[in-house]
Amino acid sequence: MPFNMYKKYCWIALPPIIAFLVGCSDLVVNAPTHNDNTADFERAWSITDSVYPYFQFKHINWDSIYVVYKPQAEDAKGDQIFQVLFNMLAELKDGHVEVDTKGGFPVRTYTPLRTERDRGTFDPLVVRKYFTEELSLAGGDRMEYGILPGNIGYVRIATFEQGSWILDFDNIISYLRDTNGLILDVRDNGGGSDATGTFVIRRFLSSPLPWPPIYSNGVLKSNPPLQPSGALTFSKPVVVLMNGTCFSATEDFLNMIGQLPNVTLLGDTSAGGSGAPQDFFLPSGRRIRVSTLDFRRYDGRPIEWNGIVPDVLVMQTEADIKSDHDLQLERAIALLK
């Protein structure tokens, strides 16, 4: 075909080229017309300033944080504010503090060091190797239980999230009432609700248990003592297994159940975070989550950062678990035999 023939038809290449250059994607996907970045920063800073309970304990000068991050927030374009909020709140080094995506995906600003250390040091499949029969599931698969050789009861509670599922704990205690002792395993339990934790504790109480100190804006809250509850009270020896992944409501649980005379806490120190976090909306619709209460151990020191210390320290590594040895469980069995 002669060259002038190609020239004659080259117009047909124009539609795709023009369409590509125009770029329909830019027409249908618009950028937001307003910018709430500075307002988001101001709100996040002031909320934290008004509710966060650990500034003094952590030696944080929150006013100086404002001076550092305000210019960054003013300069932030688009989602850059996400990083500014994240960095500002990360200064709190608090495992409860989050910056959420607009749809609610939690972006944690800090993970406690003991949680990092103990991640991978517990494996429920390794626990199973110590049993001759399969563990039973309960509470919508949030708990599992069985009887170890030597007639030792075992219950793992994987979460303390709120819900009626915990009612099954009464059936478990009833099933295990004739065992010689009980191992309560809360390793890798990241917390949930204190109401769920105290439901369990009340099944081990023979007399009222006072709450540990809880401060709100520096004021000690008064809570009525925890009362015994349940059809039967488990009064035989109990070993509670714990590690650095125990966090939040699980630490409150450890704090309180550790006061009982028949209970031994065994394992490694918990993560160190117990701040009753609440969600707060920012002007753009983003959310932040900030600790609001100062939970203390019975010795008066904050659970935050300090964690709950076991009565019997048994450290466990990922290598132990990979070689099918749960040293903490083995020690608990030895204590109860």
Partner: peptide, 16 residues
């Protein structure tokens, strides 16, 4: 190609 996305599960911002 050139892609532009606005996913408000993450944020109101436009990514491209």
């Amino acid at each position: 190609g050139h892609i532009a996305v606005r996913d408000e599960f993450i944020s109101d911002e436009r990514y491209s």
